[in-house]
Amino acid sequence: MIFFILVNLYISALTNFRLVEGFKGQVDYKNKLFILNITSCLLLLGLNSFFLEEKKADYYFVLNRNIYKREKIENLNNEVIRLKQSLKEDLLTEENLHELIEAIQLNDLVFLKKFEKIFPDFFDKITHLTTATLIISDLKFCAMLKLGLTTKEIAIYTNSTIKSVEGKIYRLRKKLKISPDIDSKSWFLNI
């Protein structure tokens, strides 16, 4: 169709817009040729808009497919994080928990080493959160809070009073800059 329009335009241009010699309605013929030219331009414009719409539809299809793929990748990344977390929880078996509790009562360093085997990145994360220097007893309390021990349990395992444990937790909160509206246990469990 485009080929037909282009051929008509070239023939018209070569004959100086006179296809038939001696045609009496030459003005009428020029008007028809003008209409033919306008029609062909409109057809070309219509074809361009059709192809443009197709390209736009293809673009939105690819865009939506990419968004879907990004969401799928993000879901898979979240699943990997969840599986890594469950793997860490698998390391925290009941037997390991009993060993950790026994180590709390015996020696700080033994407990911290065993704890670090189960939660390898925990102490690094804690030390990067604060500019204050954390001593071994601070790290021990952080580890016990990470295990989800209550204040009373920590007091029993460390042979301390509940008030002294509460004071220690308060000082840890200050050092780690934990806001007052956040629960200590949940904060440590989320690290």
Score class of each variant (00 low, 15 high):
K24A: 15
K24N: 13
K24Y: 13
G25K: 15
Q26C: 12
Q26H: 09
Q26K: 07
V27D: 14
Y29E: 11
K30V: 05
K30M: 11
K30S: 07
N31C: 10
N31G: 12
N31F: 14
L33K: 02
L33A: 05
F34I: 07
F34S: 12
I35G: 07
L36G: 03
L36W: 03
N37D: 08
N37Q: 14
I38Q: 05
I38W: 03
T39H: 04
S40R: 02
C41N: 12
L42V: 10
L43D: 04
L43G: 02
L43I: 02
L44H: 01
L45Y: 03
L45A: 11
G46Y: 15
G46V: 09
G46D: 13
L47G: 06
L47K: 09
S49K: 14
F50A: 10
F51L: 14
L52Q: 11
E53C: 09
E53V: 10
E54A: 04
E54N: 11
E54Y: 05
K55V: 06
K55F: 05
K56W: 04
A57L: 10
A57F: 04
A57V: 04
D58A: 14
D58R: 13
Y59V: 01
Y60H: 09
Y60W: 03
Y60E: 07
Y60M: 13
Y60T: 03
L63W: 00
L63P: 00
N64A: 08
R65T: 02
R65N: 05
R65W: 02
R65Y: 06
N66Y: 02
I67M: 01
I67G: 00
I67D: 00
I67C: 00
Y68G: 04
K69W: 03
K69M: 01
K69S: 05
